[in-house]
Design a protein around this nucleic acid. Structure first.
Lengths: 158, 158
DNA sequence: ATTGCAAATGCGAATCATTCGCAAAAACAA
DNA sequence: TTGTTTTTGCGAATGATTCGCATTTGCAAT
């Protein structure tokens, strides 16, 4: 039980029981380059020969998310939540508005902005959410999509 | 029909028919200080004596959003979409993780970051999504919530 | 104005992601 | 091993959103 003991600690620290399903989920997530939906993960686990139910996947992800072990986010105009292992490196993502692929970008330009907000409003900043969207290399930028402030329309006809 | 002609133009420009429902929705949205859910809007319209069905509200919002007239976004850990009129001022929001209230903040610190991304990755930036979350003035910061990188757990028990 | 056609709407049913209830199966402390 | 607390499986329930289709409306051409 070498590598697993790592997850063991992570879980125990937060008063979570160390179950094989949680190990499997954490391991699968940690291996994912990009955030996945609960169902993606479920399928992946099944494919790896792990017997688990979809509701368990949802429940575990939710629990792990609540404990900060997993990050949960939403892709604009995509009505599913996606999850990723929280590497505790602060980073954001680029999301392709065509194929919905998400890829990480390290670094964060927001420290000052948060200070600004706290100084200007009576608001205690606890975090933020930032995604940049556009066209990934595969999808190109041939489309003449208009650039709305939140989520362009898909190219419709034209 | 003085004020309404404005919406008329907005709609016509995008090849949308000018219907009273769309006027009503745009007017209601433009009057909202904060983003609202489709259902909030539906209730508001009903209260104002407008006869409309919930599916029409959804459909209109979606259409208006696709055309860039309305902004659609997601509040983390709140499984509903919220909508607001697109004033075309670029702005973001502070979201209270306790009461889910959202308030706008003008200004945006991301221009450089977007340039950085385009220069570093083969990605064509079309927009972004940024929300800051924490505790609003009403909800205070008394809770000792941990600050995860995306959405703290609610204070559980304690 | 009238006509005709495409787009928009109402209504309820359908869908889809996510959650819940509850009994059975772990985990883990004693 | 035993008892207590969590977790899990399964399927049913939920809740937001979408869809189908018949009806109505907007609006351009007559």
């Amino acid at each position: 039980m070498g590598a697993k003991s790592h997850y063991n600690d992570v879980l125990k620290e937060r008063n979570l029981k160390a179950t094989k399903h949680r190990f499997a989920i954490l391991e699968a997530l940690e291996n994912c380059k990009i955030p996945v939906t609960a169902e993606d993960l479920y399928i992946k686990l099944k494919r790896d020969g792990i017997s688990i139910s979809l509701s368990t996947v949802y429940r575990c992800l939710e629990t792990l998310h609540k404990k900060g072990i997993v990050i949960k986010s939403n892709i604009p105009d995509y009505n599913k939540a996606v999850f990723e292992y929280n590497h505790n490196e602060h980073r954001h993502h680029m999301i392709c508005i065509k194929c919905h692929k998400m890829q990480p970008v390290n670094g964060c330009p927001l420290e000052e902005f948060e200070k600004f907000i706290e100084s200007k409003f009576d608001f205690t900043v606890k975090g933020h959410n930032l995604e940049v969207y556009g066209y990934c290399s595969g999808c190109g930028s041939k489309e003449t999509a208009s650039n709305y402030s939140c989520c362009p329309e898909r190219n419709e006809g034209s």
